[in-house]
Structures are given as C-alpha cells and as structure tokens.
C-alpha cells in the first residue's frame, strides 16, 4: 500500500483493513478498552462477594481484615502508583518518538511491578505461616471461624488474580523491550492502558481488604 506511506517517511504502513495509521491506533486502543470493560466485571464479581460478606458478617470481616499488614499494603499501593506514573511517562515518550526514554521508563515500570510481587510474596508467606491460608492448615482460635476463613478465600482469590494480571503485564513489557532492542517499533499506549487498569483494581482492593477493620 504505497499510498499509505505518503504522510511521513517514518510513519509505518497500516494493516490492510485500516485507512491510515491514526485509525489503526484508535481501533487498537478501543479494543483494549472493550477488553478492560469485561475485566471490570471479572473483578466486579469479587468486589460483589466482598460486599455480601461484609454485609452478612461485619464482625468476621473486621476480625479477618485486622490480620492483614496495612504497612506492607500501603507500601505496595505506593509502589503501584509509582509504576503507573512511569508507565504514563513511557506512553508520553512513545508519542514523542523518544525511543531511549521509552526503554528506560518501561524497564522501571516492570521493575516496580516485580517489587510489588516481591512484597506480596512476603505477605503471603507470613499469612501462610500464621495459618490464614484457607484449607486443611487454616487455624483460627476466635469466633466466626467459618466466615473468617471465607474472607481469606476471597482475599487470596482477589490478590492472586491481581498478581496474575500484574505478572502478565511484566512479561508483556519484557517482550516489548526485547523487540525494541532488536530495532522494531513497539506499541506502548495499549499495554499502558492494561497496566493502568491493574493499578485501578489495586486502588480498590487496598481499602476493601486492608482497611475493612477500621482501627
């Protein structure tokens, strides 16, 4: 399609089904937004379960939540907010065509994501040691052992699903970085939308899980 290349020497040619590169960019972005809408409902179902749990057993929610480490949870929130900021910088650098800045900001974003997972793993190991993992090894001496265990089912489900998304995001960034090092053009805006969505999910998970008890 020689006609599509007329605009600029640097502009890549769009795929056959698009009129121009801009239409292709908007379509890709829209596709990610549609996917994220379905993700809202995936995590939304878990949020709904939390709402029901809190409504039926407010005391068990509070007792269970008070066993989570607010300091580490807050630290992880700050780490993820920072990674969102560096990802936004990467999207900006890509829009301006600054390849080196894209590589640096994406690498920092992925490292922050890995730091989040490391802190999360530390929390998991402490909680498992404390007997809070639901199942045969679950230990709870207080009242409401059943509803408390159910809270931790939801906690481990929600946080591990979130961690899985984050690990996917880190793998995606690593893949993109390798491509860029090999001299290819890489998309940053669409991966950025996915990363920010993971950020938004955690923004809600933090108060729902860690701050449910009050103090």
């Amino acid at each position: 399609m020689p006609a599509a290349r007329l605009g600029s020497v640097d502009a890549p040619a769009p795929a056959a089904q698009f009129d121009d590169v801009e239409q292709q960019r908007v379509s890709a972005s829209l596709g990610m937004w549609i996917f994220l809408t379905t993700e809202v409902l995936l995590f939304g179902a878990i949020f709904t379960a939390f709402a029901v749990h809190r409504y039926r057993w407010p005391d068990a929610t509070a007792a269970a939540s008070s066993h989570l480490d607010v300091t580490l949870g807050a630290l992880n929130t700050a780490v993820l907010l920072t990674s969102g900021f560096t990802m936004a910088l990467a999207v900006r650098a890509a829009a301006l065509g600054k390849r080196r800045a894209v590589a640096v900001t994406l690498a920092v974003t992925a490292l922050l994501g890995a730091a989040f997972l490391g802190i999360k793993a530390l929390e998991y190991s402490r909680e498992i040691d404390a007997g809070l993992l639901p199942g045969a090894t679950f230990r709870w001496t207080g009242s409401d052992a059943g509803p408390v265990q159910l809270f931790f089912v939801l906690y481990f489900l929600a946080t591990s699903l979130h961690a899985l998304h984050l690990a996917t995001g880190i793998a995606m960034i690593a893949f993109l970085l390798v491509r860029q090092i090999r001299g290819r053009d890489i998309p940053v805006e669409v991966p950025g939308l996915y990363w920010h969505f993971i950020d938004v999910v955690w923004i809600f998970l933090f108060p729902l899980l860690y701050l449910a008890a009050g103090r």
Partner: peptide, 9 residues
Amino acid sequence: AALVVIVFM
C-alpha cells in the same frame, strides 16, 4: 481511580 483513568489512561 478517576485520576488514573482521566490523566494516566
């Protein structure tokens, strides 16, 4: 969340 969606996204 609104800030992230409106500015970062």
